[in-house]
Simulated assay, not measured.
Amino acid sequence: MRRRHLLLASAATSCLGLWGCGQRFAPLTVSAHAWIGYEPLFYARQQGWMADILAKLNEVPDASSSMHALVAGLADCAALTLDEVMRVREAGVDMRVVLVFNVSNGADVVLAKPHVRQPADLIGRTIAVENGALGALMLAECLKALGLGPDQVKVQTVGFDGHLEAWATPQVDALVTYQPVAARLTQAGAQVLFDSSRIPWRIVDVLAVTESALSQRPDDVAALVGLYFRAYEQWRSNPQDASNWLVRRLHMEPNDIALVMQGLERPDLQANRSLLDGPEPKLLPQARSLATFMRDSGLLKRQQDVSDLFTGTALPELGAAA
């Protein structure tokens, strides 16, 4: 359901070798899973807009499938979190971020059971968390804010699909999770210890493109990004249509959709330009910090140079996205 959940369809191979059919390209292959931030792309596909550009959107079961597709050469672009892009880069695929879908601004939380009344009550207790950079980042920042060290708590790895079940067990005292699970648990008595609004611009969903696809097919990449903003603007003008689409597509209740949206910031075209464009994009310091955190946490083998990670070259001109 979320960015960390998503069908790996095969890449388009009707033209063996992208250069083989009289210089004609196969469709630009885009891999994405079902997550609110990525849904404008799926909406564009359903509307038939993808037929107007040379691109094919494959829905995959989870982010790992998109990462594997990039590494295997089966995808040119993928919707991922920034940390996932860095892991693909470390696997040897040169990637560029051309679009920011959303930023977590409260959607990710650390919850505690009622018997945790003060930070000291967590000492020696068990915190359940997803394996990966985002869970590790949320846990580390929460412990820092509470004045606790990582050696003062026990950590249990639990996938998102197991969060509700883990919470129901007496062995788990706190949980790193996100909406809509967070809302359901707080309604049942869980207390919020920490949320992502306290670490702005650290949890970011993006569209990443291989450097080769961007350099060889810049017009196709720009057309894809333009389709996203076409859907984005249509949804912004008709929020009820957007809600109805998300309810049907993601099999979520309208209230849950609203809760997730409240915890997300979805940058418009002008904000995307600020985040991605220029010699010092706004996201660059955050990416450097994230890369250092991932290296120090063992999630990356070495410090990653992210100075060339962001580009605004595929963004439409201001006023041209609607």
Rank of each mutant, 00 (worst) to 15 (best):
G73V: 07
I123A: 11
D108Y: 12
K113E: 08
D151T: 02
A107L: 13
A55D: 00
W49T: 07
V158A: 10
L146N: 06
A136N: 04
H115P: 08
Q47I: 13
K56Q: 13
A72C: 05
R96D: 07
A79C: 14
V60I: 11
A174I: 09
K56N: 08
V176G: 14
T157H: 05
V60P: 04
A63H: 02
E90G: 08
L164N: 09
W167H: 12
I53N: 14
A140I: 02
N58Y: 03
K154F: 03
G132F: 12
S66A: 15
G48S: 11
A133K: 06
A128I: 00
L185G: 04
G135Y: 03
E59Y: 07
L41T: 02
V103S: 03
V103F: 01
P114E: 12
L134P: 02
P114A: 15
R87W: 00
P114I: 05
D94F: 00
L122I: 01
V176M: 12
P180H: 10
V172L: 08
A55Q: 00
V103M: 11
A174Y: 03
A133D: 02
N102W: 01
M50I: 00
V181N: 07
L175A: 13
A91W: 01
A91D: 01
A55K: 00
V116E: 12
T81G: 15
E90I: 06
A55T: 00
E130T: 14
R45P: 04
K56T: 09
I127H: 05
A166Y: 03
Y178F: 15
M138H: 05
E130L: 10
H163G: 10
L137T: 07
L99H: 12
L41F: 13
W167F: 08
D173L: 05
F101L: 12
D52M: 04
T157K: 08
V60S: 15
H115L: 11
A174L: 05
L164G: 08
L70Y: 04
H163L: 09
V93I: 14
V98N: 12
A63P: 01
A120R: 14
M50K: 00
K113P: 07
D94V: 08
V97L: 05
D108W: 00
I123N: 07
V176I: 15
D108V: 10
A145Q: 10
R89Y: 02
W49N: 12
N102Q: 12
M50A: 07
L80Q: 13
G73R: 09
L99C: 07
D94C: 12
G147T: 01
A133L: 04
M138C: 14
V129R: 08
G162W: 01
E165Y: 03
V153S: 09
G48Y: 07
V103A: 12
L74A: 15
P119V: 03
V155T: 13
L70G: 04
A78W: 04
F42C: 02
T81F: 08
N105V: 14
F42K: 10
P61F: 03
L82P: 06
A120P: 02
G48E: 03
E59T: 09
R89M: 13
A78P: 12
P150R: 09
G48M: 05
V158R: 11
V116N: 12
K113H: 05
G135K: 03
M86T: 03
D62R: 10
V155A: 04
G149Q: 11
D151M: 01
R45Y: 06
K144I: 00
G147I: 01
